[in-house]
Design a binder for these strands. Structure first.
Lengths: 256, 256
DNA sequence: CAGCGTGATTGACATAGATCAAGGCAGGCC
DNA sequence: GGCCTGCCTTGATCTATGTCAATCACGCTG
């Protein structure tokens, strides 16, 4: 493992507060592995023995029932995943699959649980991370239950634009079929919805999207801070918990 | 506050592991309040200053967007709620409303955050509770995205029957309109779906439901342990985390 | 360069679910 | 008892979304 990798893990909010000893215990028995695209890392229902940390590449989390499958999340570096199953020593509720070649660090779940009982700061960080993930899911569920497909798409585009720097033109970060699944619609419907958004100033050329009249699109999308997390992506602000801490409650935690 | 109330709080998995000192700190500044039916305890977007513990009554958690609202959960005693917002010191993402007269204990959020940094066992319990809540939401989201309305209803009935002891006849625990919202459908549609389930051996008389041919209903519902938590309700097993720890990973934690 | 495979698009159609509009049933109240 | 008021139900209709099928566009490979 390269030194830089460990540093990047250390910088995660999940680990940045814990003691050096805790960190050494956790990473001592860990191993870094490179997986090709399309590898299933974990099948839903499997026992979970490791906390995974995505250092490079893309990972999709998906759920299945009755021969149907749906994308629950698409992760980019640096992200941890299946923390909940590790904490509870339970089976995973979703499958994890690499979407492209990925470097993944695997930390012993048993070690994590043990260390949590000894290092209050680490346990607190785990709690905060879980809370952030929880709130992300609450947003997702509200998005799913309260909005129609076109509205979900419109809001997705608005969010993407902000996350990618706010330019009028940006690229969709995944294949459209996966985006469709993430948004809870069929690829056919996503196609049609994208076409329908032409009326609202959205131009699509392959993976590139241009929002020509943001105000018009917003009038359709009605974005809401209680559903959409419009926090811009800042360097080194990768934890799910951090993304929920915005705007910050006036504590000067934000770098000045 | 009656002594018994404190004991019931202490027995929650969230608190059962923490030190007496921690528990005293938390409950010292707490207060117990009785709210009439229909009281809004918390509006989505509000700052959250307290961790709420429902001791008696029923509380509904709901989300709103664009003049539509949806029920995200219905809580019964003894349950904690809005823990995630407390941990992250963030605004609540859902509203909380009493469905009937309820006794609710309110614990200072600041105290909880402080104590988490000192008592690793408590911080660990918070992490476990959040992980349980998270997994509950993953189940809900899969249920919502992968199943149709009729299937959601069928599975709901199967789960209810098990939770209420497994008898063929049981009562729906809420008003039907709320159940509809929880299941992500309109009241009209719930009515029709219940009628449609007659073909699968479901008889409905007001709030009472009888499942005459469980096997037939299951063939429609296709329940799945990765979506439906069929854990029977045991006395004193109230935490969201505990409900996710089932079947237990062979640790003898379960009472013999 | 031709052929192939994958993903995206488009159209025609089927279905699930929402909406609108009437009733019906039960409990509470005067 | 009669009359409300909610809640539930039922029917008719409309809309959104899924499904099936055909075609297209692209990149890759032989």
């Amino acid at each position: 493992m390269r030194d830089g990798d460990l540093d990047r893990v250390r910088a995660l909010p999940l680990f940045s507060g814990c003691s050096s000893e805790t960190f050494r215990t956790l990473t001592g028995g860990a191993f870094l592995q490179r997986f090709p695209s399309g590898t299933t890392l974990l099948l839903e229902g499997d026992q979970v023995d490791f906390l995974y940390v995505l250092l490079d590449g893309i990972v999709e989390l998906e759920g299945t029932w009755n021969d149907k499958e749906t994308t629950l999340a698409v992760l980019r570096p640096v992200s941890t995943f299946i923390l909940a199953a590790v904490v509870l020593e339970a089976d995973g509720l979703m499958s994890a699959r690499t979407v492209e070649r990925s470097d993944i660090l695997m930390l012993s779940g048993a070690a994590i649980r043990r260390v949590m009982t000894e290092d209050a700061r680490f346990a607190g960080a785990v709690a905060a991370e879980m809370a952030g993930c929880y709130r992300g899911l609450v947003r997702t569920l509200k998005n799913q239950k309260l909005r129609g497909g076109l509205e979900r798409l419109a809001n997705y585009l608005i969010t993407q634009r902000l996350r990618q720097g706010g330019e009028a033109t940006f690229a969709l970060p995944h294949e459209k079929r996966m985006l469709a699944s993430l948004l809870g619609m069929t690829p056919e419907n996503l196609s049609r919805s994208l076409a329908a958004l032409a009326d609202y100033g959205v131009e699509v050329h392959g993976p590139n999207v241009t929002i020509t009249r943001p105000a018009v699109l917003e009038r359709l999308a009605k974005p809401d801070p209680l559903i959409d997390n419009h926090q811009p992506v800042t360097e080194g602000l990768t934890g799910k918990a951090q993304r929920e801490r915005w705007p910050l409650p006036d504590k000067g935690v934000r770098a000045a």
